[in-house]
Amino acid sequence: MLEFDGLYKAYGDNQVLEGVSFTVAPGQMFGFCGSNGAGKTTTMRIAMGLARADAGEVRWLGRPVDEAVRRRIGYMPEERGLYPKLKVGEQLTYFARLHGLDAAPAARAAETWAERLGLGERRGDRVEKLSLGNQQRVQLAAALVSEPDVLILDEPFSGLDPVGVDSLAEALLEQCRRGVPVVFSSHQLDLVERLCDAVGILARGKIVASGTVGELRSGAAGRQLRVVAPDAPPGWAASVPGVRVVSEQRADVVLELGPGVDDQQVLAAALATGRVTHFAWREPTLVELFRGAVTDTRAVAA
């Protein structure tokens, strides 16, 4: 378990974190969302020991994260950092060695990771000669090259083309399958929704929502059910108890169910009218959840 427990951090008068807590299980992919300046980067920097929390701590396997643990964390900072004049292969080998690999395995790992992130041919090039997207891949490879036990990635997908996104996503999913907890922050919520088992939404220094995407959805107010029953007479749905009709366009109705109302009851009522061609919950997208969560706290704060 990677636990972030009650982190507080203030820069001067600016209270950045106000008790950020969440846990990431081994093999879980945790998407860290939040508006700009919400404190995502600060949280990750605290985990890496680059900033000191005013209160709270980060634990891995029940022990506070220290030097030794950090060496087993693959980290990708928000501000990219590589030696501009060092060749890609040497760079990766160096980082692998810093994380505890011997010379030969480090060189092997560097080669493997360069290959897997599509940098095979650029291994002998200096980093400063690569395009920004490719530098990004090198940065990722630097985080992954030591086969870390934990991955903390700050905006790993920004600046990548769709192919790069796919190869990175594949690499991250593989790390998850290996049992590595992965925390990454991103503004690309569709990506977070697609990849992550769990999501944390940070707003104003607090986690305002966290859990699996499914949990977030079920917790969201106003779940809507869309039913298409071509043969049904207009107004059939209104007769079902506890159901409010949101919209009705010919046979296509969107319903909102009151608390405790069984959706099967609605289905039965629909079937009674004849054929039913569509019956599904309209899942709110993560974008909608995010908006809801962030605006809620704004309202509270204001």
């Binding site: 980290y75 810093l98 994380h99």
Partner: peptide, 17 residues
């Protein structure tokens, strides 16, 4: 200065003092 300005120092400091 080079390490500081290229931010590589953040990666290095994660592995050493």
């Amino acid at each position: 200065v080079e390490e500081k300005s290229s931010r590589v120092v953040e990666l290095l400091l994660a592995t050493m003092r």
